[in-house]
């Protein structure tokens, strides 16, 4: 399946379809699971940052990083990876400033996923 007119750095549907063995039903179901689960993950990340729990924040950011990689959501993955690294280094202030960017990337991604595959 070819998807035209999309910003592949936000969401790469061709890459996702390749990794779902071309199965659109599987791809849709994974996208729905992702979109329903990820806001709770971001909230947990915020909680860990508010508690100054750098290890907890690192693990939550890591989980979002992996989920975004799985969804072929490159920009979201990149921001999550930056939060993970900042948390690991104990720079929680830096991590907190990246949360807005993370949420913006998620809403851009959600629009693209809904427009292209759901």
């Amino acid at each position: 399946m070819l998807f035209g007119g999309c910003d592949k750095s936000i969401f790469d549907p061709d890459d996702l379809m390749e990794r779902m063995m071309g199965d659109t039903v599987l791809a849709r179901s994974i996208a729905e699971i992702f979109l329903s689960d990820i806001p709770a993950r971001i909230n947990m990340l915020k909680d860990r940052l508010n508690e100054n729990d750098s290890r907890g924040a690192e693990l939550q950011a890591h989980s979002i990083n992996g989920a975004a990689a799985n969804m072929a959501a490159n920009k979201l993955q990149e921001v999550a990876s930056r939060i993970e690294k900042a948390s690991k280094a104990g720079n929680l202030r830096v991590a907190v400033t990246l949360i807005t960017e993370l949420e913006d990337q998620l809403s851009a991604l959600e629009k693209e996923i809904k427009r292209l595959i759901l």
């Binding site: 990794r19 779902m20 599987l26 179901s29 994974i30 689960d37 993950r41």
Partner: peptide, 18 residues
């Protein structure tokens, strides 16, 4: 074994297809 729901389901979906 994975704490991320979508990764877990992706793995399961592909492995079941196999």
């Amino acid at each position: 074994v994975d704490d991320d729901l979508s990764t877990r389901n992706t793995l399961a979906g592909i492995l079941r297809k196999c």
